[in-house]
Design a protein around this nucleic acid. Structure first.
Ligand code: FES
Ligand code: FES
Lengths: 144, 144
DNA sequence: CTTAATTCGGATAAATTTATCCTATTTGTA
DNA sequence: TACAAATAGGATAAATTTATCCGAATTAAG
């Protein structure tokens, strides 16, 4: 469904959010360990999210990644997916036609449209706060 | 969403179905041209579908691919997807956890489950006959 | 000022997916 | 039987995604 990069990006963002709640920055090393992802690859993805202003980074000793407390509930999953995988999952044709268009639909267009819309709505309506709270309370997990 | 191979596989199957209705076998060359796919790569995918007994092939002059008329309405999209991409899209965790499990859910498990189920139902309830008829009547398209 | 802990960024490597090429085999027709 | 039209299948190449490595820049603390 999503690329590995996107999966890591989502999990990392959630982990950062759980810590930003308590005012803690977290390092790349810690993130990678907690979400069970390759460190250097995760670094690239985090850089990308920083460039997209979805998370913040601080260089140097005691540096790390964070999300301003008041922004946690504003970050939607859709922003993360969009930053990393682009919008093809929302807008692209399920069978790879160059455009997805009512006037030139592929054979599965009607069926697909609904699912894509559902997925889009879900990603747009899910924010990091909800997800982070479940992690904090032990209801959900980021690895294994 | 799906791999390129899977997209080609679905489109090829639909094209074969439209012709099998009229009792026409179609050659690899014709298929690739009609669905706008690389010929040799498409050959591999068709071989795979033949091995999975989703389509049939006939070697030699006047050979090609076909689907027995009475089976067209029995072939579900889910079979094709499953043969080519496997079942991870149904069963795998959206965030890549090793198992998707109610007792050890990832942060998006609940939201994802519904969409995955919808996708699964859609693929299981859509058969080649429906799709092929729309192509024949010019309602939907396999390329551009 | 020095040091250690960090992110940043470029280069490169490994793995996977996508795509091509070539030969063997099969089969209908002349 | 000879030939031409196909699929089958192995080997290889190209492209993309995933992953690693290393040096540069930044920053807090001692
Ligand atoms: S044209 Fe294929 S999903 Fe819309
Ligand atoms: S555990 Fe992630 S989708 Fe079920």
């Amino acid at each position: 469904m999503f690329s590995k990069a996107c999966e890591y990006g989502i999990k990392a963002s959630i982990y950062i959010a759980t810590n930003s709640y308590d005012g803690h920055r977290v390092s790349l090393k810690e993130i990678a360990q907690k979400i069970d992802s390759p460190e250097a690859f995760t670094a690239k993805i985090l850089q990308d999210l920083v460039r997209h202003k979805i998370i913040r980074s601080a260089k140097g000793a005691y540096g790390g990644f964070e999300i301003p407390k008041n922004e946690i509930s504003e970050v939607k999953l859709s922003q993360i997916v969009n930053a990393i995988d682009g919008d093809s999952i929302y807008r692209g044709c399920g069978l790879g036609l160059h455009v997805c268009d009512e006037n030139h639909p592929c054979p599965v267009h009607d069926q697909f449209k609904d699912i894509r819309t559902q997925l889009k709505d879900m990603l747009q309506n899910t924010n990091l706060e909800q997800l982070a709270l479940d992690i904090k309370s032990g209801v959900s997990f980021l690895k294994l």
